[in-house]
Design a protein around this nucleic acid. Structure first.
Length: 358
DNA sequence: CATTCGTGGGC
DNA sequence: TGCCCAAGAAT
């Protein structure tokens, strides 16, 4: 009786590393073979990759490295520049923490990233996963990073049927038990590559997997069913009226959001509160950023955030040159693409421009 | 431990 | 179309 789980853990690592040597994805933040990855590159990529796909991250990674080649330059950059460069990537707390982290590393640590999991874990924006990942990838520490890919691979390898997130510590322990002392950084990346390319969520390609004959879930034919996850809540809908204010000199009124909460620190098209109920005309008018003759544009803008749907009605107005607003910034329309609007705000701006032209 | 926090792509 | 998922962290 050859039970898959009885195979020595070093065999798992050996097989996976041999597979990785042939099939590793070539990514801009990875070191060429035989070289050590730059910790700044590893850190920047890991933060960008939190809950974000490789394809989405690539252009942002290149842009950030081009503008801020080292952690010192990133630390010295104005925060609004960093936030604008992050615009569209989502989860904007990452950008605020990225900048804060760069300043700690640059000013307090001489530009040198901590080379231990515990040291990394103290920095803003670096949680359990990212600390373990940087320790492994940049410093070759035998840590046990656990991201969505590795959760899935480990759950299947050992047929862990307990639902997430409760099973997370079980999976982390299982991962820790198979991390090799040799090439732990490559091992972590190999697990992620395997999860991304072979051990996929809906379509595990066990026929191509170097670990299929040591995988309990594959042997039982239940790989596609793992990991088990808790049911998700339904998304409520919120509504708002956004105010598209065009000044005669070609500027548009924007406003910076408070530092905490949704889209914290980002520029926005001024709007009413975001409420469950639709807005009556008078109530919306009372929250306009400026006194003007507003026209409701046809249609609505729809956008879905992580935990709610959002429906926006747009009101537009033209105001004289040199009109002042109590709060907000007037942005030259032709430079609007440099403002760094989050995607939902870019949708509102695009809608306003399109409908106003009709 | 549960909630909050973006966005784009795949099926 | 609607839901799932992606190199999660902070609170």
């Amino acid at each position: 009786m050859s039970e898959p789980a009885s195979v020595a853990s070093d065999t798992i690592a050996e097989r996976l590393l041999a597979w990785y040597d042939r099939h590793a994805r070539r990514l801009p933040w990875r070191a060429p073979p035989g070289q050590r990855a730059d910790p700044y590159h590893v850190w920047l990529s890991e933060v960008m990759l939190q809950q974000t796909t490789v394809q989405t991250v690539q252009p942002y990674f290149h842009d950030f490295l081009s503008r801020w080649p080292s952690v010192h330059e990133l630390a010295a950059a104005p925060r609004e520049d960093v936030l604008a460069a992050w615009a569209g990537l989502g989860y904007y707390a990452r950008a605020r923490n990225l900048h804060a982290c760069a300043q700690v590393v640059s000013r307090e640590l001489g530009g040198v990233f901590p080379d231990t999991e515990a040291g990394l874990r103290k920095l803003p924006g670096i949680g359990p996963y990212t600390a373990a990942a940087i320790a492994a990838i940049a410093f070759d520490r035998p840590s046990a990073p656990l991201d969505g890919n590795i959760e899935r691979v480990v759950a299947r390898l050992f047929a862990v049927e307990d639902p997430l997130p409760g099973a997370k510590e079980t999976l982390r322990a299982r991962m820790g038990a198979i991390v090799p002392q040799q090439r732990p950084g490559d091992f972590a990346q190999a697990m992620m590559d395997l999860g991304a390319g072979i051990c996929q969520p809906r379509k595990p390609r066990c026929m191509l997997c170097p670990l299929s004959d040591v995988c309990t879930a594959s042997a039982r034919g239940i790989a596609v069913d793992l990991p088990v996850k808790a049911a998700k809540k339904a998304k409520p809908t919120r509504q708002a009226v956004a105010f598209w204010t065009v000044r005669a000199d070609g500027c548009v009124l924007l406003r910076r959001r408070p530092d905490k909460g949704l889209l914290g620190g980002m520029l926005e098209v001024p709007s009413t509160d975001w409420t469950e109920a639709p807005w009556a005309e008078g109530a919306a008018f009372a929250q306009a950023p400026i006194s003007a003759s507003w026209t409701e544009l046809p249609g609505v803008v729809r956008h879905t955030f992580t935990h709610f749907h959002f429906t926006i009605t747009v009101w537009a107005a033209e105001v004289p040159a040199h009109t002042r607003a109590e709060t907000g910034e007037w942005w030259p329309f032709e430079r609007l693409s440099d403002a760094g609007l989050p995607t939902v705000m870019r949708k509102i701006a695009d809608h306003a421009v399109k409908k106003a032209a009709e």
